[in-house]
Design a protein around this nucleic acid. Structure first.
Length: 104
DNA sequence: GTCGTGACAGTAG
DNA sequence: ACTACTGCCACGA
């Protein structure tokens, strides 16, 4: 029998917490990792439990960090040594999914 | 059981 | 490159 939806939260936290430093996962990838397509559902969990998981290691499929904490995510990425791609002006940045995308 | 919301994804213009 | 619309899933009231 399938465990209650409450497990969905535990699965998301488990996957995100399992992401090693210097690596990132897309919301859709996290959802796929737990066998769901709820990319938005993952974001919901982060909004509520993100304080106990490395949410900054979870980025969008475009390589941009969470729309609500992008500025904060950069600080963590730089501290973790995550491969970042900066624009020539250095005004915008994005995660190098080609190198940082981590799939369990 | 239905409606609205959301730290998204993918395609089209 | 950007914005806009739609689609999918999970949760709260």
């Amino acid at each position: 029998m399938a465990q209650p939806a409450d497990d969905f939260v535990s699965r998301v936290l488990d996957v995100v917490a399992a992401i090693p430093p210097g690596r990132v996962m897309a919301y859709g990838d996290v959802a796929a990792a737990i066998g769901s397509r709820a990319a938005r559902g993952v974001g919901q969990v982060m909004a509520y439990y993100g304080d106990q998981v490395p949410w900054w290691r979870v980025v969008r499929a475009s390589g941009h960090p969470a729309v609500c904490h992008e500025q904060r995510a950069i600080e963590h990425f730089r501290a973790e040594g995550t491969p970042l791609l900066w624009s020539r002006d250095g005004t915008v940045f994005r995660v190098d999914l080609d190198a940082a995308r981590w799939i369990p």
